[in-house]
């Protein structure tokens, strides 16, 4: 992985990993000083003719069959509730200081740039990888800082792992440190599912800019083909 230097091989490697599917995108950063600026997460997409700036997936993942509690504490069937709708799906946890609030916050800013009728076409769904601490109430409070209409799901971690795995997203048991801090290992990519086939067609790595989200969410809301 350390040999990845130019944009194109990096993209192709990302695509290969995505094709490989059942494993999470492995870390191609931290091979030196450059790892810290998450440069490896910035997969650009020059090889594609798509209007979208996110990574276009060649393998279209099925929307996971996942029933968990939403933030009102009621069962939420992801497949049934979001059938025929555009969905952005992210796995994370609320005690995460950096990547989770940054990603969800940036999506929130991008959503706020859309007209209300456009926003209503998109469902942003956050699935907790730390359900023990992320109760529906905790999740709602956290999500409200980024999007009042964001859907938060929490419940059985085994179900969460099973749902994430076929998407190439690794979720592991959270680890609680002596000082009470929680570290959860979770793939930090965002997947966009399209309304036509309810499958994932686009992927956004951690570090995707607000501008990229704003650009692509606009296209998604307009139903522009990937």
């Amino acid at each position: 992985m350390a040999s990845l230097r130019s944009t194109r091989p990096r993209l192709m490697t990302a695509a290969a990993l995505v094709l490989g599917a059942s494993l999470a995108l492995s870390a191609c950063s931290s091979s030196g000083g450059g790892g810290e600026d998450s440069g490896a997460a910035k997969v650009s997409k020059q090889a594609s003719t798509s209007q979208y700036r996110g990574t276009v997936l060649s393998k279209h993942f099925d929307k996971p069959d996942l029933v968990l509690n939403d933030t009102s504490g009621q069962p939420y069937d992801l497949k049934a509730r979001t059938a025929g709708r555009t969905v952005l799906l992210f796995f994370g946890y609320t005690s995460c200081p950096d990547v989770c609030p940054t990603t969800m916050g940036d999506i929130g800013v991008a959503m706020s740039k859309l007209a209300p009728e456009q926003r209503q076409k998109l469902d942003v769904v956050f699935v907790s990888t730390d359900p023990e601490r992320d109760t529906p109430q905790v999740l709602r409070t956290w999500l409200d800082s980024m999007g009042k209409d964001f859907v938060g799901l929490t419940g059985d971690l085994a179900k969460v792992k099973a749902a994430a795995k076929p998407l190439g997203i690794l979720v592991e048991d959270p680890v609680v440190a002596a000082n009470g801090s929680v570290t959860s290992t979770h793939g930090a990519q965002v997947l966009a599912f399209l309304p036509g086939d309810d499958k994932a067609h686009l992927l956004y790595m951690a570090g995707t800019t607000v501008e990229t989200y704003a650009h692509d969410l606009q296209l998604l809301a307009q139903g522009v083909a990937v």
């Binding site: 999470a24 492995s26 870390a27 950096d98 690794l170 979770h186």
Partner: peptide
């Protein structure tokens, strides 16, 4: 922050005539 998680670090290098960036996602 790493691709899938985050790890605690004991110290961080501040290179000579350079900088240490504490930034989102890193």
């Amino acid at each position: 922050s790493t691709e899938k998680s985050m790890e605690e670090v004991g110290e961080l290098a501040v290179p000579a005539h350079g900088s240490l960036d504490l930034a989102r996602g890193g």
